[in-house]
Design a protein around this nucleic acid. Structure first.
Lengths: 141, 141
DNA sequence: ATTGTTATTGATAAAACTTGCAATAAGGAA
DNA sequence: TTCCTTATTGCAAGTTTTATCAATAACAAT
């Protein structure tokens, strides 16, 4: 079964529908790995779907996040960017140069454990963005 | 020395100026503890400073964050809210009801340690927002 | 295939946030 | 106090994001 067919069935099981807009946006995030802004995604998807509105892009991105098919992350500027859902991970962004590194979720496992104990909250493993100073920017200060 | 005078001197030392706009916004966040949206802050501050623009509120909030006098945090809707700088802490927000609890920074200390080791980044202790499900919403699902 | 239900889209307007620039005013120096 | 420098503000326009609602189209059932 293709990836697209699988996703379509996932949505239908939950009472939702697969549409060209959703398929195209998923395809874009799948092919171009990394983070993408709504504006970027809108530009790329418009090539396939002329007349696609920004409104729909924002709504589709929210929808795909809700359904676990893509993940949101904060960019250095504070705006949200999106990428295809992969293994659970997080980011540290450099306050100074905007560069970033990926953090495996396993590193947060223990903390999440403690957070659950202390707060009573069930920690769903959503993306977290930390801020810091990268090595280069540390030494150039 | 009053709190205001102290803050004024802090800014001057760094080549910045204390203004009625900055003082008023600091006062508001100081008096009304908790998180406040830019719109909320603008509404309150406008009582003291008629003609205050939203632009200035956004710029002032950014400025005060940069200078460590207030802290930003993500609200349940994903927008930024602000509070007067206090001891270092973080939040867990419930995805379902939007409620939140505070997390002491000490709980993250060990993780930050590890993050620095793994990434080489210097972890500045900025506010982190986690998402989860509170006890009430867990049982009502 | 055709039909009916309703999830989804596009259009429009509004709200939230940012940028560039000229006018203003904070505060150091005379 | 007065003057000068320039950080800061307000204004106006632009960008980004959200909300509302009627028209459309996905897809389950016939």
């Amino acid at each position: 079964m293709t990836c697209t067919m699988h996703r379509t069935q996932e949505l239908r099981k939950r009472g939702f529908r697969m549409t060209p807009q959703r398929q195209t946006i998923l395809q874009i995030l799948h092919d171009a790995s990394g983070h993408h802004s709504p504006a970027d995604i809108h530009a790329r998807a418009s090539l396939n779907i002329p007349g696609l509105t920004e409104t729909t892009v924002y709504r589709t991105l929210d929808f795909l996040v809700q359904n676990g098919m893509i993940n949101p992350a904060q960019s250095a500027s504070g705006h949200l960017v999106y990428e295809i859902a992969r293994h659970n991970h997080h980011h540290i962004i450099c306050r100074s140069c905007g560069g970033s590194v990926e953090i495996e979720h396993t590193l947060l496992q223990e903390l999440y454990q403690q957070l659950e104990t202390h707060s009573g909250y069930l920690m769903t493993a959503s993306h977290v963005t930390f801020f810091g100073l990268c090595q280069v920017c540390q030494s150039s200060t």
